[in-house]
Design a protein around this nucleic acid. Structure first.
Lengths: 164, 164
DNA sequence: GACAAATAATCTGTGGGACAGACATTCTTG
DNA sequence: CAAGAATGTCTGTCCCACAGATTATTTGTC
């Protein structure tokens, strides 16, 4: 396989922003997926579970918008999480159409474990950065994501994150 | 649709690294996809085309590894790019198994246009950042991606970027 | 209050892409 | 030279995302 380190043949500085974002994302997804283990929908299920454990519960539409998913996808996502006993659909008292997604006690407990595992994994991924640098990365990404969000709501381009 | 700006209801600071990476990536992918227009495989085709236009051509296996794709996916990716007349499969003189992927003159021309569009789109996405901050983001991401790459080659976890 | 339009959740069907596995060809290593 | 590995390709399968229609409920308008 030749040594990657010795003769990488200079990829010609192709490590531009698109490649870096994709690979940083992929790397994070990799460690995250390993950390969550057999959770119903992997990293995505983890995100949903976290939302469900927040003090103010949301309905599926809000969850879908936040996670960047199609509404129809939320159905079986919540289905499987519910089947696993981690979340439950609670009828919204103020709107009988919508169902609030709320974590069950078992879900909260599971989330607690998962947080430990994922935070450890994330810390390891960021171990080359100082805490200050990690915080800096955080804030820079936030500003990029914030600008990106504006595009989404303008012409709701549904980037499905499927293309590299 | 209610005003997003007025009452976002405080998402509870869920904007952690996983969400930020996913959304920054998605945002970038969104503008990129719009910029590349009808290129055969969208942003992915763009990345492949760029690799093909480098001075030293690579074979499909190397491209696949760099882009984080399965080998079998490269087949129809290059197929479609070749059908569009943008790249060509050149037999490797030093290894008759492998075929080097090289951009045709038409591919180079097309890439030149695409670069203008994508760089403009990317600049707009980063317009809230100063040039120095953009460079900083670049280098921080590089260090994260570099660490992530080490995991990949350790236990080649094939994060497919499909989960949010 | 009655009606139309909009919204939340769901179900169905369809298409496409990712992945495993097998195969032919060629290189490498013993 | 023989055995194993690597490259590119093909086949088949499976899962997932998306469009469209449906039901129930809310909101807006007159």
């Amino acid at each position: 396989m030749a040594e990657e380190t010795a003769a990488p043949a200079r990829t010609g500085e192709q490590e531009d922003l698109s490649w870096l974002l994709a690979n940083a994302f992929r790397a994070h997804l990799g460690v995250l997926r390993q950390a969550v283990g057999d959770l119903p929908h992997g990293a995505r299920g983890f995100s949903a579970l976290r939302m469900a454990a927040e003090p103010v519960p949301r309905n599926q539409a809000e969850l879908a918008k936040f996670l960047g998913l199609d509404r129809t996808v939320m159905v079986y996502l919540v289905d499987d999480l519910e089947k696993a006993g981690l979340v439950e659909r609670v009828p919204d008292p103020s709107d009988r159409r919508s169902k609030l997604i709320r974590a069950t006690p078992a879900g909260v407990a599971r989330l607690c474990e998962l947080r430990r595992a994922t935070e450890a994994a994330e810390a390891e991924l960021l171990s080359d950065l100082s805490p200050a640098e990690a915080e800096l990365l955080h804030s820079l990404l936030r500003r990029v994501a914030a600008r990106g969000a504006r595009y989404d709501q303008a012409h709701d381009c549904q980037a499905d994150a499927n293309e590299c």
